[in-house]
């Protein structure tokens, strides 16, 4: 939008004729629209050609219909939830009437998670895993970047764990979590903890690597400034190393968030942890005539959310980082 305005005013100053500006705007808006239209057309045409045992591959129209259905299901489920709470309130009131010592407890709705709930669950999970990973990765990356010996000690470990698929971690994570995370009334569900840890294990590495590279390759002049000023080690990190590495750290964070999102969907599918991955798996298992179009809807939603997450990170990077040229893309 900003670019558009700039282009507009810039054109006015330089005295470009109005049709030229219009053309420029048209290009910026029309080409993506054209691309999407062509994709939809091609998708619609090709989808009909693919015949599966669950009917033909869903086209744009059936996906649009499922979007509507999923929303309606969400609304219906909310209504059911309201009724649930009402019944519960009444039941609690009845019991209190009989047994004044009873302290009524409001229990969360036990019905199914709707598609929208599952989107929310996935988002919360991915952000938790990602932030947890960042809280380990960035300090570790700084330490590794600052200390050559530490780097040489840890680098092989990073290189070995970096290419490991989430699916390989998952069984181990599940077993370890059930062994160690024992509580009668856990604050977090085990499935949530499993997902978060799996996501963390997979997205921690790009952040460690990028942070350490950023830290170890801080402009030597800035390092010298710190030396000449005799900054204490902590102050050196705070005033020079950390700000200087922000662009590299953000590059790592963006990579990590992308990985985190992909990993989460896979982990949810495999471990049946609530979220979009489970939604897809359940629909696949259901094998109903609307399953494929629902899965396709989820695929598109996953894509859009992944895109928005990346844009979001980019916006934060632009806001936080001093290096505007790096954040342009």
């Amino acid at each position: 939008m900003n670019a558009l305005i700039q282009r507009f005013t810039g054109a006015a100053e330089s005295g470009e004729s109005l049709p030229l500006q219009a053309l420029a705007i048209l290009k910026q808006v029309a080409l993506p629209v054209l691309g999407i239209a062509a994709f939809l057309l091609l998708w619609g045409l090709l989808a009909k050609q693919v015949d599966t045992s669950l009917g033909s591959f869903p086209g744009p129209a059936s996906v649009a219909e499922q979007v509507k259905n999923l929303y309606q299901e969400h609304v219906a489920e909310r209504a059911k939830a309201d009724a649930f709470y009402e019944r519960q309130e009444k039941r609690n009131a009845d019991r209190v009437a009989k047994d004044p010592n009873y302290v009524p407890k409001v229990r969360a709705y036990t019905g199914k998670e709707t598609f929208l709930d599952q989107i929310g669950t996935s988002l919360v999970t991915v952000m938790s895993g990602f932030l947890l990973a960042a809280s380990f990765a960035i300090p570790l990356g700084i330490a590794v970047g600052l200390s050559k010996p530490l780097n040489e000690a840890i680098n092989p470990i990073i290189q070995i764990f970096k290419p490991v698929s989430p699916l390989a971690w998952l069984p181990l994570v599940t077993m370890v979590v059930s062994a160690l995370y024992v509580s009668d009334d856990p604050f977090f569900a085990k499935s949530f903890v499993n997902s978060v840890i799996t996501v963390m294990l997979c997205c921690i590495w790009p952040m460690v690597i990028n942070t350490s590279i950023g830290v170890s390759s801080v402009n030597s002049d800035w390092v010298n400034v710190g030396k000449v000023l005799r900054l204490s080690p902590l102050k050196n990190i705070q005033k020079i190393v950390l700000p200087a590495s922000i662009p590299a750290i953000f590059t790592g964070m963006r990579m990590s968030l992308g990985i985190a999102w992909m990993v989460l969907i896979a982990a949810e599918m495999l471990a049946q942890n609530p979220g979009l991955g489970k939604f897809i798996w359940d629909e696949f298992q259901n094998g109903s005539s609307s399953s494929l179009s629902r899965i396709m809807t989820a695929v598109l939603v996953i894509g859009v959310i992944g895109f928005l997450l990346d844009r979001g990170m980019l916006m934060i990077q632009r806001w936080v980082s001093w290096d505007k040229s790096q954040a342009a893309r």
Partner: peptide, 17 residues
């Protein structure tokens, strides 16, 4: 190094942030 021997570097070396 120490501040009693301040250095003006060739590439200004201002902290860009």
């Amino acid at each position: 190094p120490g501040p009693e021997r301040a250095v003006v570097f060739q590439n200004h070396s201002l902290l860009p942030w």
